[in-house]
Write a protein that binds this DNA or RNA. Structure first.
Lengths: 134, 134
DNA sequence: GTAAACCTTCTCCTATAGGAGAAGGTCAAG
DNA sequence: CTTGACCTTCTCCTATAGGAGAAGGTTTAC
């Protein structure tokens, strides 16, 4: 398989496949006599894994830490559990932040409907944003 | 007020104040004979406004669009309303995405507790991530 | 008079996940 | 034999909001 074929197989641009190689996520493939990258099944699995892991919210750096363990012969299960737990906590935390922000935005917009643009002075720049709810 | 003083007054590093000036968020201040930036009340209000707007989730580019209107003599209320509405929608959308992700993470972790690391094969790299719920 | 604490501009760097284009080699088909 | 579609490496660029350091001038305090 050449890079264009494997890229099509997983739905990535060839640039991205080379990028993963540079990042150390994908082993350097063997080369054809003309210098072209030649991939096998393992690379296909690896790319699919990367997509799955990204879908689970892992960063490429985190994916890297997982494949590094795998490549070193260790079963990465425990490490993945820890990553997922940390990810879950950060997602929860982010959700809480966004809930607060959404509430504030709604309050600002509600207040805004009762404000007169003519009363918006130059020094406060924008009364909708500046006038915090009492 | 020199840059260090105004920076302390709003709790920003002096670097950031210069950065806002470069970004066009803050007017170029007058200079003392020695070349030092000298600020007045207006700059203080502007910096406070930027912080408030950022807290509302606006990007610096969006803040820029607001102060640009203000500086051009237009009351930016309508524009701010539109920005807030768009921001609200994107926050809602993001929250929905995170809710789905949180659920998936929880499912993965639950499944993980019933999996045997010994069964994790090299080709799938990690069964926790790879085995999607049936 | 000198050391500390300011200030100035300049340029490059961070994280994240790639995207864009240049300049060139290679391969299959008409 | 040339055109188009591949492939190669190289470097720089994107968005976001600054951070870091260099090299130098100024002001304040002792």
């Amino acid at each position: 398989m050449l890079i264009g074929e494997i890229a099509d197989a997983v739905g990535l641009p060839t640039r991205t496949v080379r990028y993963y190689e540079r990042r150390g996520l994908l082993a350097q493939p063997r080369r054809a006599p003309n210098g072209y990258r030649v991939y096998g099944e393992a690379a296909l699995n690896r790319l699919r894994f990367i997509r799955t892991a990204q879908a689970a919210g892992l960063t490429l750096a985190e994916v890297h830490s997982v494949v590094e363990l795998r490549d070193s012969g260790t079963t990465p299960c425990a490490h993945v559990d820890a990553l997922l737990a940390a990810k879950l906590e950060s997602v929860r935390s982010r959700r809480r932040q966004l809930a607060v922000l959404e509430k504030e935005l709604r309050q600002m917009m509600e207040r805004s409907s009762g404000l007169d643009p003519a009363e918006c002075t130059e020094s406060e720049i924008c009364q909708i944003l500046q006038k915090r709810p009492d």
